[in-house]
Design a protein around this nucleic acid. Structure first.
Lengths: 124, 124
DNA sequence: AACATTAGTATTGTTTTTCATACTTACACA
DNA sequence: TGTGTAAGTATGAAAAACAATACTAATGTT
């Protein structure tokens, strides 16, 4: 009969003890804020054209519908990544900018932009 | 009547000329490969536990179902990010590792991990 | 008076993701 | 002979994401 020390167990069953869930995986936390079809592109668009008007985003972000744009912007605002400034004019004007927190995403956006460019080149 | 030069038009309608779509936004290209609920966490998990066995991932990545895991791994493989090594044994053994291309994602994963940690701290 | 403008909301429908469950294979071991 | 094992497949249902369309408000311009 084999003795049953920890060392021996590790030899027998050589499994790593990692756990990946919402609480222990920070990558997941980021994806919850930046995931989905439009979030990352919107952060990028606002970053590059700030201050960005609603209609401007609607025209430049190809394929997004008006209701989707509204919804995604609200969610980004709720997560504290963008801020919304309403001008009391007729017709209305609303400008979106990145908050301080939103600006801290720029390392992610830059590494993603760089990778995306290189990936596209490799695929051809 | 106002004259109609380009300069004048730019003054009248001060719109930026950015366009964001799949072709011109590299961030979108990256998100197409890394988007969804499980992709980023799986890349991270394989990165940290490589070589990662199928059953190991099933246990460590909390909440994922077997069929979802299979499907996501296949897609990552099709995109050239991970490789799959089958051992002709009974019961079967399959090991996943990041490819060279998959490893180039590490700047993204690291910036996402860093941001996620800081975001979690700020929220409390 | 009618129309254009901007930034929306509301409603309904479609498509994509994700989940749950049952089934398979080939061998080793009791 | 029956049971356990690892890495899957197959099927159908549920949930979430996304899209399309019509509508609104207050004002200026034709």
């Amino acid at each position: 009969m084999k003795n049953n020390t920890n060392v021996d167990n590790q030899e027998v069953k050589n499994e790593k003890t990692f756990v990946f869930d919402e609480k222990s995986c920070p990558v997941t936390a980021t994806m919850q804020v930046l995931g989905g079809k439009w979030k990352a592109i919107l952060i990028n668009a606002i970053y590059l054209t700030s201050p960005a008007r609603f209609g401007e985003l609607k025209r430049s972000v190809k394929g997004i519908t008006q209701s989707m744009l509204t919804q995604q912007l609200r969610e980004l605002e709720d997560d504290g990544l963008i801020s919304r400034k309403i001008y009391a004019e007729i017709p209305p004007r609303v400008e979106y900018t990145l908050t301080e927190l939103g600006l801290t995403l720029s390392p992610i956006m830059q590494s993603m932009a760089k990778w995306g460019e290189e990936y596209r080149m490799k695929k051809q």
